[in-house]
Write a protein that binds this DNA or RNA. Structure first.
Length: 661
RNA sequence: GCCGACGUAGCUCAGUGGCAGAGCAGCUGAUUCGUAAUCAGCAGGUCCGGGGUUCAAGUCCCCGCGUCGGCUCCA
């Protein structure tokens, strides 16, 4: 480490000795920062005032709502987690503290305690936290030898902290102390607790103590989640956002919109699609099916069960047994398929394949069953029976890049159609220093990985390389979709496989007349229909675009004498290929509109005396409202146009009869 | 699988050991109405399932199932 370091601050260049505290530099050169900011950042690293400087760089102030809001918030939340631990220690005597880091939108702290915390406990703890915050406790950074820290925590009976200190490398450690509470922590922290304006404890949960430490008997911790913001308004916005997400919860909307249900009588993790959910799913399947047919895919169908032998060959029986449902048939063991690949392979290997007929692209909406742990099931997003839009491309090694490009193009087209305009792409690669973990040889991996990267590069796609994240059988590309609320969802996946072609000895005859190893690509665009539709429901908040809406138009007669006309209108809509209904109830128009709005139906066609006389309909759109009167032909022409285009926008019609923009 | 909470009408929920309830939805009738809730009546229950305590259990206890919040794992 150099004796002295160069620090830029406020345009000034300084030479200070390494280890100088941030506070000392600021006192001399920028005393107002000590008052107005909560810390500094140096080369994008947050530092608090008590930390030592060890690297060259420019210091910029860290302020609430400043130019690095997430860094400042993270600091605030980390300090709040210490306050949480302090409050818990004060209120409960039988508690050991664990760890308490900030998270993406808050923080948590884990406690070791016989009894879990109740909601009443949480209220009391939050009250105590507010009290502690108000006293403007200073957070004091202490640096000391490991042994000393161990002693401090041992004396307090904090065995878990002792364990953490002991496992930490180096000889010197840091702790932060506020009031009588001291925590083993690298920081950085706010100068004092008075800088925390808005807090909220959210919920409790259980968590394992250091599950990755290799300990088998890790104790169960009681975790408390909370969040903190620099203003009450920000906290309010955050809570509103949570409520909005709750309203979009696909499980809630699945019931409200009559899309699907899970039945206790039948078993957990198995979805029953109602007619309306089925309509949505059918549209989604048909869309991809058509796309695939036009892109040279073949359709195949494979059975749901197969003898154990097939799964032994594929390796699933050894590596995936825990997750497979098995059944006895004539004293033989059969397996309910957890994946579609072995079935597609049986079709491939049934004939002698020539290099001339490759690639072969086998696609299937294949329903698979996996015995997931009961605790992980979650609505449509995590189920035990689900249908994959699965395809396996069998090709020559020299065709890999083009086939991957084709799959990428399809994935991009599909995401765009559903209005997922933002996404993240991961390229998961193997780690050459960890060879034991992977099937196939280094040459294969090199070829395959560069094929994937080349395909991404040639399409100008931005992606992140994830080292050592490949599947054991090959590298892969994963899409993560960002939905309307900014949340990420698992999207398409494209995976190369070196393992199954070996296990099944898949070959093709080359132009040299010899047999060569076939390359195999797994790809799923939706992934699972269940998960994809679950995500779509939340993305659209239940308001499906016209082409997907289970009921596209509902005709609302104003009085009973208009029912006949309404039925004629509905019939015309159906003839044009729309899904139409008539509300024949005798209530007021307002009530019918309200019900249609609640069901999020895209179009209401209101018909009364005026409309009958002019042979028109009054069009109301669920978000735009009253669109005025049109002839049914004009309306249908525009609606059909939007349906065929699979438009996702919420503004499908213009009042002036012009074609949609 | 593990920790905790919860499970009452189709849905949302009240019911703190003593007659099983409300709102919405449904059905019937009245009303015939122009852009987010017309009125009245009726019907609707294995209080998740099983066992126990008690004169008496939706309520208390035990076991099981399911759901939810997490941990861990995954499409």
């Amino acid at each position: 480490m150099p004796e002295s370091i160069e620090i830029k601050i406020n345009g000034q260049e300084l030479l200070v000795s390494a280890g100088t505290r941030v506070r000392d530099v600021l006192e001399q050169h920028c005393p107002e920062w000590l008052k107005n900011s909560i810390g500094v950042s140096l080369n994008d690293e947050p530092l608090d005032f008590q930390m030592p400087l060890h690297a060259n760089g420019e210091l910029t102030p860290l302020e609430p709502g400043g130019n690095a809001p997430s860094m400042a918030l993270e600091m605030c939340r980390h300090t709040t987690s210490h306050v949480l631990a302090q409050a818990v220690k004060e209120l409960f005597s039988d508690v050991q503290v664990g760890i308490g880091p900030p998270t993406a939108d808050g923080f948590y702290y884990d406690f070791l305690r016989e009894d879990p915390f109740t909601p009443e406990d949480l209220q009391a703890i939050e009250k105590r936290m507010r009290k502690l915050i108000k006293t403007n406790q200073k957070l004091e950074r202490l640096e000391m030898p490991k042994e000393e820290a161990e002693m401090i925590f041992a004396e307090k009976g904090e065995d878990l902290k002792v364990e953490l200190v002991r496992d930490k490398g180096g000889g010197q450690v840091s702790c932060y102390k506020q009031g009588n509470f001291i925590d083993f922590c690298t920081g950085p922290h706010l100068p004092h607790t008075g800088k925390i304006p808005a807090i909220k404890l959210l919920h409790t949960a259980a968590a394992h103590w250091r599950p990755k430490s290799g300990r088998k008997d890790f104790p169960m911790m009681q975790r408390i989640y909370g969040t903190a913001f620099f203003s009450a308004e920000d906290l309010e916005t955050f809570l509103d956002h949570r409520d909005e997400a709750k309203k979009r919860d696909h499980r809630r909307l699945g019931i409200d919109l009559d899309l699907f249900h899970f039945d206790e009588k039948a078993g957990p993790g198995m979805a029953y699609w109602h007619p309306k959910g089925g309509t949505i799913r059918h549209q989604i399947e048909a869309f991809l099916c058509d796309e695939q047919l036009s892109r040279g895919y073949d359709v195949v169908y494979t059975p749901h069960i197969a003898r154990k032998h097939l799964w032994e060959t594929s390796g699933h029986y050894d590596y995936y047994k825990e997750n497979m449902f098995t059944l006895d048939v004539d004293e033989q063991e059969y397996v309910l398929k957890p994946m579609n690949c072995p079935g597609h392979i049986l079709i491939y290997e049934k004939g002698t394949r020539s290099y001339r007929e490759l690639p072969l692209r086998y696609s299937e909406f294949g329903t698979v069953y996996r015995n997931e742990l009961s605790g992980v099931l979650h609505g449509m997003l995590r189920v035990r029976g689900f249908t994959q839009d699965d395809a396996h491309i069998f090709c020559r090694p020299d065709q890999i890049q083009e086939e991957v490009s084709g799959a990428l193009d399809l994935a991009l087209h599909v995401m765009k159609t559903f209005g997922y305009d933002e996404y993240r792409i991961d390229l998961s690669l193997h780690d050459p220093s960890n060879r034991d973990k992977y099937a196939g040889d280094e040459d294969q991996w090199g070829l395959a990985e560069s094929a994937l990267a080349d395909a991404l590069d040639s399409m100008g796609l931005v992606y992140e390389r994830q080292l050592n994240e490949a599947a054991f059988y090959g590298p892969k590309i994963d899409f993560h979709l960002i939905d309307a609320l900014g949340r990420a969802w698992q999207g398409s996946t494209i995976q190369l496989d070196f393992n199954l072609p070996e296990r099944f000895n898949l070959t093709y005859v080359g132009d040299d007349g010899y047999q060569h190893r076939t390359a195999m690509i797994h790809r799923a665009i939706y992934g699972s229909l269940e998960r994809f539709v679950g995500g779509l429901i939340e993305h659209y908040g239940g308001a499906f675009p016209l082409w997907l809406a289970p009921v596209q138009v509902i005709v609302l007669p104003i009085a009973d004498r208009h029912i006949k006309y309404a039925e004629a209108i509905a019939e015309a809509a159906e003839k044009a290929g729309l899904r139409a209904e008539v509300d024949r109830r005798s209530g007021k128009l307002g009530a019918k509109i309200r019900d249609a709005q609640t069901q999020k139906l895209p179009f209401m066609l209101i018909v009364g005396d005026r409309d009958m006389e002019n042979q028109e309909v009054s069009v109301r759109h669920r978000t735009v409202g009253d669109l005025g009167s049109l002839t049914i032909e004009t309306f249908l022409a525009q609606a059909v146009q939007d349906i065929e285009a699979r438009a996702v926008r919420e503004w499908p019609l213009r009042k002036d009869d012009a074609a949609p923009a």
